[in-house]
Amino acid sequence: MTELEIKKLLVRYFLEKYENFIVGSEFSFQFGERRADIALLDDGYLYAFEIKGARDTVSRLNYQIESYKKFFDFCFVVCEPSNLSEVRMTIPRDVGIFLVENNEIKYIRQSKQFKRHDKKVLSSALSVQKLMALAKGSNLKSKHELCEYVSKHNTLESLRKLSRDDFKAKYGVVSRLLKQETTLHLTSDDIYTITKRAPSLLKRRVP
């Protein structure tokens, strides 16, 4: 399946299982170096979903997951039957798994809750304006410098909350519109609505 097709199934699964969730596609963190295919905020917890379709390589999957653990509370890999065994062998047991089979999302394994987040990575998702406000007139302008300063002068719990609040601010309105206007038969436009990235990049994956 294409990445877009899997995303539609995954968001449909959320619509069936959750009520007050907020969802974003291609969510950027770690200074834009990493993107979660799908991110979900529910009850204050942030979930990451890395999609690995049948034609995708899993060679970098463990590295991708390790970066997710620095920012997200729960991490899942979404795969197909043909690469389920390879995914199982590649990722640690503390990472959850969902399976795409027969146009359905099936729960396979729960994710552990990750709590040892990286304060600098948490702050990297905030805008420069928000970071400058937190830096209280330090005259720093580089985002890396601002994140360094903010991470040193704020607690892990406060930065975790700020990052979740920021996610809510970015995706709250579009998620509400998605839930109000969408049936369980999602279209490509529904996914583009929650994507902070050019729709042309949502294409069929190649090995």
Rank of each mutant, 00 (worst) to 15 (best):
T2V: 09
T2M: 08
E3K: 10
E5Y: 06
I6S: 04
K7R: 12
K7I: 10
K7W: 03
K8G: 12
K8N: 10
L9H: 06
L9W: 01
L10C: 09
R12W: 07
L15Q: 07
E16M: 12
K17F: 13
K17T: 09
Y18S: 07
E19G: 13
N20Y: 08
I22Y: 06
V23H: 00
V23N: 00
S25W: 04
E26T: 05
F27G: 10
F29V: 08
F29S: 03
Q30A: 11
G32P: 01
A36D: 03
A36C: 07
D37H: 01
A39N: 04
D42V: 12
D42T: 12
D43M: 12
Y45W: 11
L46Y: 00
Y47E: 06
E50S: 09
I51C: 03
A54P: 14
A54V: 14
R55C: 12
D56G: 10
S59N: 15
R60W: 09
I65L: 08
Y68V: 00
Y68G: 00
Y68N: 00
D73G: 03
D73S: 07
D73C: 02
V77L: 06
V77P: 01
E80T: 13
E80P: 01
N83T: 08
E86Y: 07
E86D: 14
V87A: 07
M89G: 15
T90H: 04
T90A: 11
I91H: 06
I91Y: 08
V95T: 04
G96Y: 01
L99P: 02
E101R: 15
E104G: 09
K106A: 09
Y107M: 15
R109T: 09
R109D: 06
Q110T: 11
Q110H: 14
S111G: 09
K112D: 08
K112V: 05
Q113V: 10
V121P: 02
A125D: 04
A125P: 02
L131E: 02
K136F: 15
N139C: 10
L140T: 09
L140R: 07
S142N: 12
H144Y: 15
H144P: 10
E145R: 12
E145A: 15
L146Y: 03
E148I: 08
Y149Q: 08
V150R: 01
H153Q: 10
H153L: 11
N154S: 14
L156A: 09
L156I: 11
E157H: 08
S158A: 12
S163W: 05
D165C: 09
K170T: 07
S175M: 01
Q180D: 14
T182M: 10
T183S: 13
T183H: 04
L184H: 11
L186Y: 04
L186E: 06
D190K: 04
I191C: 05
T193Q: 14
T195A: 06
K196G: 13
K196L: 14
K196Y: 15
A198L: 15
S200M: 15
L201G: 09
L202S: 05
R204T: 15
R204L: 14
V206S: 12
